[in-house]
Design a protein around this nucleic acid. Structure first.
Lengths: 157, 157
DNA sequence: ACTTTGTAGTCAATCAAGTTGACTATTTTA
DNA sequence: TAAAATAGTCAACTTGATTGACTACAAAGT
């Protein structure tokens, strides 16, 4: 495969491919560390659970998905040993989802791996350009959502 | 919602959010034009079908998914009037999938919309920075895949 | 020539991540 | 304190994918 094909990629494909390259590498490396049962969809949920736990409703709002979808994901993560449901201290209807020890391990591993990947990318394009890239993407994400900051904001990891 | 939250987003979230912002806006506008039955997953398939059609196997390799998944997508797009299966001229096993008139309409609409969105983004961050952003993302996508250019390359649209 | 092997596509069953709607158990409010 | 709102679960469905089994045709090897 030669370089030429990549020069012809449009912005949409570039964003799609760079994102999936990042996620794929992350999950390859998590699998090597024994976290093969963690899938891309679970990533952003951990971000909301740390550090103090979260209720299902909070997770649903944060991820922009329904509470039912959250409930099923939590079923899976609880079964896999990453989180546990605790009874809510003041509201007997609610539960708070918190990380187990294994949950903390995968979150720490994820942070380390992402730092390494971003470091590699910075070495490739230069730290100044990486800084610019993040600034510009921040502007685009912000601009795109002024006035309609909705359920659509669903980052992963 | 204030700007602060976006300044704290990491690279992964930035790529995810910018990509989904782009795709969401594209599909909102396609829906307004009466192409509400086109979904994000269909996008990259059109890219491979144009301009001369493609076989199911070619599409599967291009998209990095199975031929069965392609077959089901083609079922849907044929039912919706965007493509047709033609008998292959030389190989009676094969079929070539080509765009209908409606298929061409949606491809043209897509190109126009993406150009407009990218134009808006360029106005936001500046054309030079947009050029840099595309260069840098190209480098990352290319670097990430040297030696392991695999089924993982699945852009959308 | 014709049998073996390979290839293009479809059918069926399943999975993963999401949806909507109905329901229970609580909490809040009027 | 009765009525309305909220947190969570259950069940059925959708979408985009998978693997495995199968048919029809093509290409190669004796």
């Amino acid at each position: 495969m030669n370089h030429q094909v990549f020069n012809e990629l449009d912005l949409t494909s570039l964003l799609s491919l760079s994102f999936s390259a990042l996620i794929d590498e992350l999950h390859d490396r998590l699998r090597e560390l024994g976290f093969g049962d963690i899938r891309p969809a679970h990533g952003f949920m951990f971000k909301c659970i740390t550090p103090n736990g979260a209720t299902g409703i909070e997770l649903a709002e944060y991820l922009g998905i329904t509470k039912q979808a959250v409930s099923k994901m939590v079923d899976y993560l609880e079964k896999s040993g990453y989180v546990v449901r605790q009874t809510h201290p003041t509201d007997k209807r609610g539960k708070i989802i918190v990380l187990t020890e294994r949950g903390w391990l995968v979150v720490k591993a994820k942070e380390k791996i992402l730092t390494e990947i971003e470091g590699g990318w910075s070495k490739n394009i230069g730290t100044e350009r990486m800084q610019m890239l993040k600034e510009d993407l921040s502007k685009l994400v912000f601009e795109e959502n002024t006035g309609k900051l909705s359920s659509r904001l669903r980052p992963v990891w």
